[in-house]
Amino acid sequence: MNKLNFILIFFLALALSSCEEERFDVKKYGSVSGIVVDGSDYSGLSGVLITTTPPSTAILTDENGAFQFDKVQEGPVIITARKEDYLTGTVSIAVFENENTNLTFFLSKDENDVGNVVLFDPVPGNGAVNQNLDLTLGWRTDQSQADRTLTYTVFLFESNSTNQEIIGQNLTTTQVIASNLKPNTTYYWYVLAKFEGRNVANSPTWTFRTGTGS
């Protein structure tokens, strides 16, 4: 075998190997469904734009506030809900192959007149597990008009529930105690910031799971 033929065979084998690797790199998919409701009266919100990151098809909620993504790639995904006159809501989830993840969004009316306000850095960290049945929830705030004193309301709800509990209201500090939680339960929570009684920002919806409590 001459040198030229050897080089040609080598590159042909390399190309076939690459094709074989691509053929076995099969993407896996799950589904995501949920409902978007008004945070004050719990009525379903229609026409809410629902998007994902990484991106997939953008959809609108139906007349009852419901939405469904039939094919979302497996892995970490951020779901975002946007509607005019409402504060944008986001939640980070994990999508698993051939499984459906169900979400609830509580959107609050946007009454912002204090510039940009961002609520971030939750404690415990988003997705934390084995948490105590009594624990302190905390967050950080960044605001463009630091002279405006904000107050906070903290909402907590269980996975797949459309009922939320207020565990802190008119707070002037960025933490609150959640007590008497259920063991082995996934909870979602978010913070609504207000200035002089008007809604100015809400946090992403964060999640944690309690331990056995023993």
Rank of each mutant, 00 (worst) to 15 (best):
S159T: 07
A94P: 02
I93R: 00
T212A: 15
D85N: 15
L171D: 01
I59R: 05
E22N: 11
V32Q: 05
L137D: 01
R209G: 07
T101P: 00
C19P: 01
N180C: 04
D70M: 09
G115A: 06
V200C: 04
F195C: 05
Y187R: 00
T88N: 08
S33Y: 07
V36H: 01
Q68D: 13
Q169W: 06
S92R: 11
I50E: 01
F96C: 03
L135S: 05
F6Y: 13
F11S: 11
V114T: 12
Q169A: 11
Y29D: 04
P55E: 14
L49F: 08
A13Q: 08
M1Q: 11
I7Q: 14
Q175D: 15
T101D: 06
A201I: 01
Y190T: 03
T212N: 15
T136M: 11
T51F: 02
Y152T: 02
K194Q: 15
T174Q: 15
S56E: 11
V129N: 12
Q143H: 01
G34N: 04
G127T: 04
K194G: 01
L135F: 05
D41C: 06
A178Q: 00
I7Y: 13
V200M: 04
D134A: 12
V36L: 05
C19Y: 13
K109I: 10
A15Q: 10
N2I: 08
T61E: 00
G44W: 04
L133W: 04
M1W: 10
L12R: 06
P183W: 07
I7M: 13
V72I: 15
N5C: 10
F11P: 01
A201R: 00
K3A: 13
F105Q: 01
Q73L: 12
G34H: 02
V117Q: 01
A15F: 14
P124K: 04
V91S: 05
T53R: 10
T173H: 09
Y42A: 10
N102M: 10
L16Y: 09
V77D: 02
T174C: 09
F155K: 03
E22V: 07
N112D: 11
F106V: 04
S33D: 12
T162M: 10
D113P: 00
T186C: 01
T185W: 02
L171S: 02
S108R: 03
T212R: 13
Y29E: 06
Y29Q: 06
G89Q: 07
F69Q: 03
I59K: 05
K27D: 14
D142Q: 13
M1H: 11
R209N: 09
K182M: 10
